[in-house]
Write a protein that binds this DNA or RNA. Sequence first.
DNA 1: TACAGAGCAGTAT
DNA 2: ATACTGCTCTGTA
Length: 178
Amino acid sequence: MVIQTIATPAGWVAAAWSDRGLFALSWPQDDGQAAQAGLQEKLRRWGGGNGGFSLVAEGNGQPFAPVLEKALADYFRGEPVSFDIPVDLSWCTPFQKEILIAIRRIPYGEVRSYREVAAMAGHPRAARAAGTAAGANRTPVVIPCHRVIRKNGELGGFGGGLPLKKFLLALENGKSPR
DNA sequence: TACAGAGCAGTAT
DNA sequence: ATACTGCTCTGTA
């Protein structure tokens, strides 16, 4: 596992890479230390134990690290970005994997309801389960779980906090920064 | 409009 | 075994 810290227009983001791709991503923080510490805390919780990480400032050994870095910079500048990098979904259950993959197919700037996402994944009745699966997402933004909202137009929930969900949607609607 | 009840998959008690 | 989730649909009144 390799940890990378990235400066974006929205703050510092920490990324964890496994040999299968991007494993986890933190939310933007005020400083790189905080982002990294927060991500490691999560990794420890998920990994059960201390899991051996090697800290690396610039993701050496991970060919997609520079790609992620540029994509995040562009994204938080308000540009339409497709995160074309491998994501490690080996930690999730088959259902979660299906849901997260479906979410990944939602185009930039668009939204889908929890039910639509569930249907895309082949489980038309599992709207609620889709919600909990979305909440389990470890690579926010790259897997755009913020583009999933309620069918009645309400935002629904969000692991990173609803204000953040709102911000991301506004950003993708071009009503933000630039 | 309001409120049960059911189906759904995971996680936490 | 239960309870609670980032939900939504079908009654019932």
